[in-house]
């Protein structure tokens, strides 16, 4: 079981170590560490000496239309190599337009034009990286433009067409299913599950009228636990990561959630998570 490393609890986690915390590996966003110094970088380095690290990007702008930043890709490749990440992942979204960084994950249209664009850019990112490249499905609240493909068709074409891994975010599937009125398992089971390299789970906020926002600021809900169980039964023992980025509780609360996830993993997959 992995945990997304955040400055808010990194020192407390470091003090506990891998055994006592039950956290077997860490996920780190290069954007939080590269090109800077200071206390949080020192804490990250200390953590990286004790836990295996997997990198997960936020800003490559995979589905965007601004040119890919070659110097960023070079520094990303160097970082991925330095920390020994077994793969690197990014979101299927856009995050910048017209040299304006939106610092968030925005939806791309499920159209042939958008698919071609994302495939071409994913190919370039994959070629720049020293490790396999995986893409993650996002939560989306509205779809820009006139849809030509379903989300499943889009992701299948992207992953299989470009020989990518899939970082399957179970919470994002659930959030989208609830918001857009489809069956989460039906959608999930039609994805190229043989390409899954990693799973994400997180909490989301329920707004008025039941609309769900992927905040990473709440505990994982029971329905997502259930969907995770079913996913693990289908895909087998792939690494699972808990994301908590906002309203971060005391570390013991977070670790209790990691422990609950670990038990579920052992129930389904047998071995150590």
């Amino acid at each position: 079981m992995g945990l997304g490393l955040r400055a808010e609890f990194a020192e407390a986690l470091l003090a506990l170590g891998p055994e006592a915390s039950g956290v077997r590996w860490l996920e780190v966003s290069p954007e939080n560490v590269t090109g800077r110094g200071g206390h949080s970088v020192k804490t990250f380095r200390a953590c990286a000496e004790r836990w295996p690290v997997v990198t997960h990007g936020l800003s490559v702008n995979l589905g965007g239309t601004d040119p890919l930043d070659a110097s960023y890709l070079a520094s990303l490749a160097e970082f991925v190599r330095e920390v020994g990440s077994p793969w690197h992942s990014e979101h299927v979204c856009f995050s910048a337009v017209g040299a304006r960084e939106l610092l968030d994950l925005l939806p791309i249209p499920f159209t042939c034009e958008s698919l071609d664009n994302t495939r071409r850019r994913a190919r370039l990112v994959r070629q720049a990286l020293p490790v396999p490249f995986a893409v993650e499905n996002i939560s989306w609240y509205a779809q820009p433009g006139a849809r030509e493909l379903s989300e499943v068709e889009f992701l299948r074409e992207l992953v299989l067409g470009e020989d990518l891994g899939l970082l399957l975010d179970v919470n994002n599937v659930y959030v989208n299913a609830r918001n857009h009125g489809f069956d989460a398992w039906d959608m999930l089971s039609r994805l190229p599950l043989e390409r899954v390299v990693q799973l994400h789970v997180a909490g989301h906020r329920v707004e008025r009228l039941g609309f769900r926002i992927d905040t990473h600021g709440e505990p994982v809900c029971d329905e997502v636990f259930a969907l995770l169980r079913r996913t693990l039964e289908r895909v087998g023992p792939v690494p699972v990561l808990l994301e908590r980025d906002h309203d971060i509780p005391p570390l013991e609360v977070l670790l209790a959630e990691v422990s609950r996830l670990s038990k579920l993993y052992q129930d389904v997959c047998g071995g150590a998570p």
């Binding site: 239309t65 249209p109 034009e113 820009p144």
Partner: peptide, 10 residues
């Protein structure tokens, strides 16, 4: 087109 959609959302 895609760039216009993204500019509009930006």
């Amino acid at each position: 087109k895609l760039p216009e959609l993204q500019r509009a959302l930006g």
